[in-house]
């Protein structure tokens, strides 16, 4: 688990992007919250890949189809376009090679849904600017030396990476601290400043 679970306001936003009966792979499925939500409300054919063995065992005990594995290493075993949606929620920043992982998501899924904490959020900027220290917030509770989040990015950084990989942004949403969507018509710089989290729907 790479971010505070209570703060997973992005789950519902992600779930709303997925139509019923889809084939879904949740990469970094954690305790299985999203898979369970999708199975209960959308009757999806859901699979999970999770790094922590404890998370996996809990998921399987709850009847979810989850395997232990590493997003950096184990995505290569999945066939091209094997899923309608591949979800990477709050995990991209914890991968060793985010570019490769995103590339794999776009290969395996007809669509990829990626959510991540926005390092361009004003609180983060303020912490660096005023205190000159790496931010520790409710959303990002780790100190710099013990964080699993080794590849933070801002919303703008992510949009650039999508361009580089030839991915089309079909939908994007920024969420504020309360998990509320930030006005749809706002420009990127606004989202990048006020969005605490971002959810992207991608296709290639």
């Amino acid at each position: 688990m790479s971010v505070n679970r209570d703060q997973r306001v992005d789950l519902e936003v992600v779930a709303n992007l997925i139509p019923p009966q889809s084939r879904v792979l949740d990469v970094g499925s954690g305790d299985g919250s999203l898979l369970e939500l999708l199975q209960d409300t959308k009757q999806v054919d859901g699979r999970g890949l999770e790094l922590s063995q404890r998370g996996v065992n809990e998921c399987v005990a709850r009847g979810l189809s989850v395997i232990q594995g590493d997003a950096d290493k184990d995505l290569e075993f999945y066939p091209d376009k094997g899923f309608d949606f591949v979800v990477l929620s709050q995990t991209l920043q914890a991968t060793r090679n985010p570019k490769l992982v995103l590339d794999e998501l776009l290969r395996i899924g007809n669509r990829a849904i990626v959510s991540f904490p926005n390092f361009g959020h004003w609180r983060v900027r303020l912490s660096l600017f005023i205190q000159g220290r790496m931010p520790v917030t409710k959303d990002l509770p780790y100190s710099w030396y013990d964080t699993p989040n080794i590849h933070f990015c801002t919303i703008r950084d992510f949009v650039n990476l999508c361009d580089e990989l030839g991915a089309t942004v079909e939908k994007a949403t920024a969420l504020d601290a309360a998990g509320q969507k930030i006005g749809l018509s706002m420009p990127w710089w606004f989202w990048n400043f006020f969005g605490q989290q971002a959810v992207f729907l991608l296709k290639r």
Binding site: C59, V60, L64, I67, P79
Partner: peptide, 15 residues
């Protein structure tokens, strides 16, 4: 598990 993934199978794996 990797082979089953490649075959698109529904698979759980617990260690």
């Amino acid at each position: 598990v990797h082979a089953l993934n490649a075959a698109g199978a529904s698979v759980s794996f617990v260690e």
